[in-house]
Amino acid sequence: MTSTLHRETVENRVFRASYLALLVFMLLPLFVVVVTSFSQAGRLAFPPESYSLAWYGEFFESTRWLRAFTNSILIGVGTALLASFLGVTGAFGQELDTDDSLGAILQPLVLIPLLIPPVVLGITLLMYFSEVGLRGSYASIILAHTLWATPLVYFVMRSVFSRFDWQQLDAAHDLGAGPVRSFVHVVLPNVKHGILVGALLAFIISLQEFVMALFLSTPSTTTIPVLAWTQIRQALDPMVSVVSTFLILISLGAIVIAAIATNLEWLSKQLS
C-alpha cells in the first residue's frame, strides 16, 4: 500500500513538472519578445544588457512602421467585416435550409482552405489576382485573409445558431415580422455576442497572417508581419520586438473584449 502511494506521488510530481515545463515553453518566446523590446542596444540578445524605451521612440518616428500599422488595421477591419458577413449569412442560411443538401457541400468547401499550406494559397491567389487585375490592392489581401477567417466565423456562428431557440423565429413570423425584421428584432439580439467574437477572431487572424500577405502585398500595402519579416532578415534589432509587443497587446485586448462580451451574457443570465 505504501509503495503504491509512493509511486503515485512520484507520478504526480513528474506530471506536474512536465506540464509546467511546457507552460514555460509556450510562454517563453512571447516573454522574450516583450522583454527585448525594452532593450537599449541595437543587437538582439536575451536577456538584454540594459533597458530603455529607445526603440519605442524609434517606432513612433518611423513612417514605414506606422504605415504598416495602418495597413494592418485597415486590412484587419476589412477582413473582419467581410468574413463576418459571409460567415453569419452562410451559417444562418444553412440553419434555415430544410433539406441541407447545399450545406453538405458548403461545409467542406469552407473548411478546405484552412488545410492547404498558406504558401500554395498565396501563390495561387497571386497568379489569380494578376489575371483579374487586383494585384497589389488592399482588396487582394482582404480577400485572401477572408479565405482563412471565414471558416472560423462560420463555425462559431454554426455553434451559436445551434443553441438558438428557432421557435422564436417562427413566433416572430407568426406575429407579422417579415424575413428582415424578424432577423433584426429577434435573431440578431440573441446572437450578437457570437458575431462579435467571430469578428474579433477574424480581425486577429488577419492581423497575424503573414505568408499570404507576403506574396500579395506591395510596398504600399505592407502589413506589420510582412514588414517584420523583411526587417528580421536584414538585421536583428529590437524594433521587431516593439512591434510584436504592440501586436500581443492588441490580441490580449481582443481576448479581454471577447471575454467581457461572453461573460456579460453569462453574468446577465446568472442575475436573471
Binding site: 509556450m26 517563453l28 518566446p29 519578445v33 497575424q208 503573414f210 508581419p225 517584420a228 500581443i248
Partner: peptide, 18 residues
C-alpha cells in the same frame, strides 16, 4: 491561446536569441 493569437513571424523570431 495567446501564441495562437500572435503572428508566426514573432513566434519564430523569438527563438533566434534563445
Amino acid at each position: 491561446i495567446l501564441p495562437l493569437l500572435t503572428t508566426l513571424v514573432i513566434r519564430t523570431y523569438a527563438f533566434t536569441p534563445l
